[in-house]
């Protein structure tokens, strides 16, 4: 059975390592290398970058030799919603306060799941934001505004 490169597990893993290693090597090209005696800030990163590059090549080659399929397909949709909920929370915190940020976060995060029940998510979001206010604001004394404009 032929496995296309885009679902070849080890080939992709190798590529991820190679891309990161090359990025690190390019980013550290201006750091002074120094000598073994007096290592510059570039020594360790560059050595690590080269090792990672080698590992990446070995893994990618092995993927080509013994192809294995990525198991279970990619869950881009849940990943996207989970990450978006975190970004939305961070973006909103300074602007609208803790409670609305948590509620928005809950609705975006819940959309990652298989089922999205409006009532359930609403109840959960309200309960958990109340819980968060209790724990973080009153319990731990974090200095956040609850709802900008109302407090």
């Amino acid at each position: 059975m032929k496995i296309p490169l885009e679902s070849n597990k080890d080939f992709l893993a190798g590529m991820v390592f190679i891309v990161i290693a090359v990025t690190a090597l390019i980013a550290s090209k201006d750091f002074a290398m120094g000598t073994t005696l007096r290592m510059g800030p570039g020594y360790f990163p560059r050595v690590l970058g080269i090792i990672l590059l080698l590992f990446g090549i070995v893994i990618a080659l092995r993927g080509l030799r013994l192809p294995q399929r990525v198991e279970g397909g990619w869950g881009w949709k849940p990943l996207l919603f989970v990450l978006a909920s975190m970004v939305a929370f961070a973006f909103l915190m300074e602007r609208v306060g803790l409670v609305p940020s948590i509620i928005v976060m809950f609705f975006i995060a819940a959309a990652a799941g298989h089922e999205f029940r409006w009532l359930e998510v609403t109840v959960l979001a309200v309960l958990m934001s109340a819980f968060a206010v209790g724990v973080f604001i009153y319990g731990l004394g974090l200095p956040y505004r609850l709802i900008v404009g109302l407090d």
Binding site: V87, A90, I102, M105, F106, A109, H114, L124, F136
Partner: peptide, 28 residues
Amino acid sequence: PYRWLFPSIIMFCCVGNYSLNNSPMDLY
């Protein structure tokens, strides 16, 4: 059910990481 659990886990992760430096950058 897990669909109740995971948004709550994300909430703790968000507030916790945000509270370290009070900066959205950590979460980005």
